[in-house]
Structure formats: C-alpha cells, structure tokens
Amino acid sequence: MALNQSLRPGLIQLRVLDLDETLKFYKDILGMDEVCRTSDGRVCLKTYDEFDHHSVTLRLADEAGLDYVAFKVASNETLQEMVKATEQFGYTVTEVPADSDQPGYGKRYRFKICTGHTFELYSEVALAEKTPGTINPDIWNEPPRGMGVIRLDHFLLYGPNIEEAERYCTEVMHMYVPELCNKPDGKRMATWITGSNKPHDLAFVEYDKPGKIHHVGFLLQDWNHVGQVADLIAINRLKKDIGPTRHAITRGQTIYFWEPSGNRIEVYAGGYTAYPDNPQRVWDVDHLGRGLFYYEGEIIPSFLEIVT
C-alpha cells in the first residue's frame, strides 16, 4: 500500500556482460518471464506475480552495473507535480516519450541525482499479457520456476552526498525514512527509504564513487523459500556472498549472491511493517555489523566493498 504518492520502484535497467548466459539465469534460475526484446537488443522481463508490462531490462555492455531506476507514482497529476518539484530541487529533467525505449511504458521523466544515479518517474504502464488472476483467482496461473521471485522489491545504491538524496526522496517523492545509520560525527552513512509499508523501497550508502549499485532485491514468500534459494545457488554453482541469514535492519530474511555478469542479487522475505508515524530506528556505525547480519554479528568485508 502506498501511503503517499510514490507507489513503488517499478523498473530497473541493468548492464550485463554476457546477455545469453545472464538471461538464462534470470529466466531459468531466478524465475522471471521474458516479455519482449527491443530493436536494439535489450531484453525485458517480469516476475510471475507482477501486473505491469515488465520490471527488469537487461542491456549488453562492456561493464556491469546500473543504467537507471524508475519509480511509479500515483497519477499523472502527481507526476507533473513531482517533475516541477524536481526541477525546483535543482535537478535537470528530460522527458522520455511514451512507448519508446521501454515498451508498454507511458512518458517518463529522467534526471540525475547527487549520488550520480539516474532516476525516472512515470505514472502509466500497460498491463502485461500474463498477469495474476483477478476474478476468483488461483494463487498462480503457472507454477513459479526456479527461485520463484514474487516482485522487484528494492535496490541499494552507493554514491556521494546521500543526505541530499535522502532529502530529495522525502521532500519531492514524499517517501519517509524508517531506518538509518550515522557516522560518529553524526553524518549519514546509510539510509533506508520507503513510500509504503515496506521497510525500504531503496537504500543509499555513502561512497566516494558515483553511480554504483550494491544489489537488486527481489521478494520471496517466506524463510523456507530463502533456504530453497540456497539450494539452487549451490546446485547451479553460483557465487554466494552471505546467507541464508537475517538482517536486524529491516528484519528481513535474506541471501545474497552474484548473477553471471557480476551484479549482486538479494532475495528477501519478511521484514517489519513500516508506518511514517513510527519512531525512526537509528544505528551507530559501530553496531552496523549486527544490524546488517544479525546472526553473524559482524560485517562481511565483501558485502561493503564489492559494487558494480
């Protein structure tokens, strides 16, 4: 449920090094459906439980990482208000025509924020050809494949000046911050931001290099499914980072691993219910290891150091 005006992170475009091998992972192991291919060779995918046309686009490139993320907002009126507020905030906005580089999507507005990441806002997207049922529906129309991810859930971005990025999300996108981590000098080290009851739609970590992505998070049904993902990681010889484990931050049950092109993936279940009137949860940096990995109680170096 969106509590304000930003509904959800609805689209992410990732750069991959080997399109065929990486696409096989997203379809056969992660369990997404291929929706279409664009004239320039990009591939659009969705999970079995998403209604929108697609949520993930893969683009062949020489370097793995993130092209941009896009957020769906409540209405065209909301969209226009946010575009105006974005320009007043100080970011230059360009319009992306409807049904152009992302099939099925209405007009989108693109801009770069202080962390070096490209954001987009949109309010209209076509329904997918295959969607969850709506009339006396079964729990699914076709059995989920592989890891059976339910939806694109969130992402963690690395870049400089995250306090400004946090302020943009709260002031312009009308999100809020359920949880954060501060350095000893009081400056922000990490922030978890949401526009709904989820613990986070996106998160930022302060980092000296702009435009980096730490991971893309997909939702699973429950802790048992996290364990099944661990089995599939082992069976398919994927490189695991950490887990199965649990976060104290967000309280999510989780496992992290890398897809064939080197982008880190999280699959995630659980987490607390967030409300904007709840007291904010605050972590000191010397407790961050326990916050990130509640069972291990310490930071795993690869988790903080490897980004794309």
Rank of each mutant, 00 (worst) to 15 (best):
residue 35 V to Y: 00
residue 199 P to N: 09
residue 296 E to M: 10
residue 226 V to L: 07
residue 239 K to W: 04
residue 95 E to H: 02
residue 296 E to N: 14
residue 289 G to V: 11
residue 228 Q to A: 09
residue 279 P to D: 13
residue 108 R to E: 14
residue 108 R to N: 10
residue 125 V to A: 12
residue 244 P to H: 12
residue 238 L to S: 06
residue 289 G to T: 07
residue 245 T to I: 12
residue 277 D to F: 08
residue 56 V to I: 15
residue 238 L to Y: 06
residue 16 V to D: 01
residue 132 P to H: 06
residue 139 I to W: 07
residue 288 L to Q: 03
residue 187 K to F: 02
residue 4 N to V: 03
residue 209 K to C: 04
residue 210 P to F: 06
residue 160 P to Y: 11
residue 63 E to C: 09
residue 21 E to T: 14
residue 301 P to I: 08
residue 7 L to K: 11
residue 297 G to Y: 10
residue 98 A to L: 02
residue 180 L to D: 07
residue 108 R to D: 05
residue 29 I to T: 13
residue 116 G to A: 12
residue 162 I to H: 00
residue 307 V to D: 01
residue 147 M to T: 02
residue 72 K to D: 01
residue 262 G to M: 06
residue 278 N to Q: 14
residue 213 I to R: 03
residue 46 K to N: 07
residue 37 R to P: 03
residue 77 E to H: 06
residue 48 Y to S: 09
residue 208 D to R: 05
residue 258 W to P: 01
residue 134 T to W: 11
residue 173 M to P: 02
residue 222 D to R: 01
residue 173 M to W: 03
residue 127 L to M: 13
residue 8 R to C: 08
residue 29 I to C: 08
residue 41 G to E: 01
residue 249 I to F: 09
residue 4 N to E: 12
residue 36 C to V: 14
residue 240 K to F: 04
residue 84 K to N: 11
residue 301 P to Q: 08
residue 276 P to K: 07
residue 121 L to P: 03
residue 81 E to A: 15
residue 142 E to S: 12
residue 280 Q to A: 06
residue 277 D to E: 13
residue 64 A to T: 13
residue 159 G to K: 00
residue 248 A to M: 05
residue 170 T to K: 15
residue 93 V to P: 00
residue 216 V to A: 14
residue 298 E to V: 14
residue 121 L to V: 05
residue 4 N to R: 10
residue 223 W to I: 12
residue 257 F to S: 02
residue 303 F to E: 02
residue 68 Y to I: 08
residue 27 K to I: 11
residue 116 G to Y: 08
residue 189 M to L: 13
residue 69 V to K: 00
residue 225 H to N: 14
residue 118 T to P: 01
residue 123 S to R: 00
residue 307 V to Y: 06
residue 12 I to Y: 04
residue 56 V to M: 08
residue 154 H to S: 09
residue 221 Q to I: 05
residue 284 D to Q: 14
residue 157 L to D: 00
